[in-house]
Design a binder for these strands. Sequence first.
DNA 1: TGGTAATAGTTATCTATGGTAATTATATTT
DNA 2: AAATATAATTACCATAGATAACTATTACCA
Lengths: 143, 143
Amino acid sequence: MEGFFQRYLSLYRSLITTLNELLSAYELSYSLWQVIYHIKNNGPSTLVDISSRYNVEKPTITRRVHRLEELQMVKQIPGKDRREKVIQLTELGDKIYQECRKKITDLENSVMEGVAKDEQKAAFHTLPKIQENLFNREGNKSE
Amino acid sequence: MEGFFQRYLSLYRSLITTLNELLSAYELSYSLWQVIYHIKNNGPSTLVDISSRYNVEKPTITRRVHRLEELQMVKQIPGKDRREKVIQLTELGDKIYQECRKKITDLENSVMEGVAKDEQKAAFHTLPKIQENLFNREGNKSE
DNA sequence: TGGTAATAGTTATCTATGGTAATTATATTT
DNA sequence: AAATATAATTACCATAGATAACTATTACCA
């Protein structure tokens, strides 16, 4: 499969740019969207939850959450452990989630135009498999 | 295809990190590799050639090329137009290309383990199609 | 042919995103 | 109770890319 990475990475910049443009209407970027998405789909979460979900260091998530707090899209809610910062979507955050979710889904559909359903499925199924292979390979290295 | 972008983008960080680790043995990163790759496969090139190939602004390419010159992997060769800076691989650059090409191809193969050949082909074929759809969509926006 | 346009590259500056190391506050373990 | 672990933060640094302004050279054309 020589050239696969090239194809994969070539698409990356176009896609992330398009998504960021789409989200910029809400003062968001894809990295901020990830946080909103995670909270919406997993309920109130701590920074460590989000950090481990996306394999991103805690300080990075601290910054994302601070930004979303400024934008009043998330808020802290009390948890039992006073070390933790449990965050939840605000009403505004939820509203913006709905709007963005719709636009992103539309984009996902429009981008697949002309691609056969079974090819879509193959690609959908292949991506996480590649990621798993990468992960296992990493694991082996540290043995 | 809701969730496709998520799957696609989730893979990105693992992949680029793995590639950068692989390339760091040669003091390279994927962005530098792109320049070497382009020259190797298209012959002596100007900064504008490379810039337009990867849809990256000229100053970005200036920096990449300067870095590769420092590493003595590329050198400038005379061209007819004295505005242009035509760059070519050095012997060292070519040697490193060969080594990296081999390692990257190995990685491309190992990452596809357990993925059926026809699924690989479907994914390989789908990525540029998505990119084309994205591009056309962008085009429509500016009408 | 002389003046204006366009082109290639560079420099300076800015933004976005992420990482590491060290620190504080709180919980857990022993 | 003391030591350790965990959650979050702060300060600092790196990478990658963009824009704007500039220089040098070439192309155009009237």
